[in-house]
Structure formats: structure tokens, C-alpha cells
Amino acid sequence: MNKSNRTYIRVAVLGLLLVALVFALYSSFVKDPNAVKVGKAAPNFSLQQLNGPDMALSDLKGKGVVLNFWGTWCEPCKKELPALQQQYDQFKDKGLVVVGVNIGESTVAVEPFVKQFGVNFPILLDSQSQITKLYRIGPIPTTFFISPDGDVEEIFIGQLNEAMIAQKVSKILP
């Protein structure tokens, strides 16, 4: 075998191994390619509304969406609900929708709870926790701020207060 042939083969073998390295590194950095990320489109879904028809996220295009995952057993969620309601009242005419996704509870458990807190923004029932898994929800409350064109602007884990919501909502109003 002559010299140039040998170099050619070495370049090919090393190139192939380099591709393997790049791929391995890529997959070590991107552990969950399906995870919901800031700057990416929020995955569409459809769920049954408490006392209402099914609602799809895509129905809300053109509006700023606050997507809040919560449960009646979660104390910070309870404390956060009035703040969410207050901001919803203030901005709903300016194109804001607050959507509460209840995680795996029955209508009978959710309905009196929502009434008790005077919540009137749409509540979706994720009875099988399917959307909770899709959005990779860990601790709750977790809130997604979604822009009018459907991109995730911010993800917040933990309890929000009115000022925080107002500040974040200002970025997603149409």
C-alpha cells in the first residue's frame, strides 16, 4: 500500500471515530430530547375541561398562556391560586389565559376545591397524568409561560406571587 492510500484510510477511520465521539457527546448533553425547554415550542395537547368541553393548547394561539400544573394536596399550589386568579382577572382582556392543569384527581375532588378558592380560569383534568409526564413535571407547582406563538418563554418551579406573575406575564402578552 502506498503512502497516500494509507493517509486516506487513516483519515477515514479517524473520521468515523470522530463522528462516533460527536454523537456520544451530543447524546450526553441532550439527555432527554423530548424535554420541554425554554425557547422551544410547547408541545400541544388536549384535555377535558372541568365543567366544559375539551381544550387544546393550540386553541390558545395568539394569546399569552400561563400553564400551571397543580394538585389539591399541594400547599404552595393552594397559596398560589389566588395570585394566579388575580392576574388572570387583570390581564384576561389583554390576551392572557391562565390554564390550571390538575394532576390525576377526580372531578368530585377538584370541583369543590376550585369553588372554594373562587377560581374561574379554565381548569383541565389530566386524569391519567399523561400531560404531566409529557411536560416532565417533577415538583409542583410548575408553571410554564407560553408566548402567543406557542413558544415556552419561561419555566418556573415553585410558588409564585402576584408581582412575579405580573413581571413574567408582561413578557408573553400579545
Partner: peptide, 10 residues
């Protein structure tokens, strides 16, 4: 599920 394109849908 033949209707798997939209998660959460019936």
C-alpha cells in the same frame, strides 16, 4: 392509539 398525534385527546 390511532389518535396519538394529540396527547391527552380521547
Amino acid at each position: 392509539n390511532k389518535n396519538a398525534d394529540l396527547p391527552g385527546a380521547k
